[in-house]
Amino acid sequence: MITAVTDGAAAAERQLRRLRHDPTAIALTVGGPVFFIVIFGYIFGSAISVPGGGNYREFLVPGLFATTGANILPAMVAMARDSGRGVVDRFRSLPIARLAVPFGQAASTAVYGAISFVLMAACGLAVGWRIHRGAGYVLAALALIVAFQFAATWIGMYAGLVLGNEEKAGQASILVFPVMMLSNVFVPTQGMPAWLRAVADWNPVSAFAASLRELFGNPAAPANGAWPLLHPVVASAGWIAVLLVIFVPLCVARYARS
């Protein structure tokens, strides 16, 4: 058990060292949301009104934290590349716990998620986003972001193993964008057609975004009676649990046998 932890730590160290050699990866992960702050915060945002009359950028920024935390792409691409190039096979031929490498990778992306949150929060503060609640709520929000990132990483690693190489992962990454758009991250959902609104309201990213708005005290989108949006923090915690229960065993089994 203890060796599994040190093996995991070695795998996490590997990911963090890779990141240190590749500052553009951080720049892109953080740069994407900053880009959205400009496009949505100032261009589309000028035409979007938040129900209840709040500042749109205060509505948007927690949503962008959610899209970053729920982003499965970095883990997916990293695992697909390792799998396609034989790095996974090398680790699998070592006498270490099969759980250790994916666990270490998930832990390292959670660390990475916390770093990118800090950078994005700084950008958010610069464009008028504010925290309206106490330190306990902020810590809860940070914990939720790290936990959601951890869970999303398992989806990403599983997808990366299934795809098996970098090229396919690149093609599949296009599918992630609509999942992020089909939520309450950028616009309140009540103007959408009923069927689309149901999908958006039950999208885990929507509950995640709503929970961050609640914890930071930012303007919320109407829940339209959807349970996950009426209880966003509980729903987000639930989603995290469900995703971990599904994807950890899938990913570990696939890693052990692929």
Partner: peptide
Amino acid sequence: LAGQHAAVDDDLSGWENLFIIGLML
């Protein structure tokens, strides 16, 4: 195991590749 199916990590230095494997072992 080495060759076709076990590879080194392009995004690390040569030394780091060996160091990480040493940690794992």
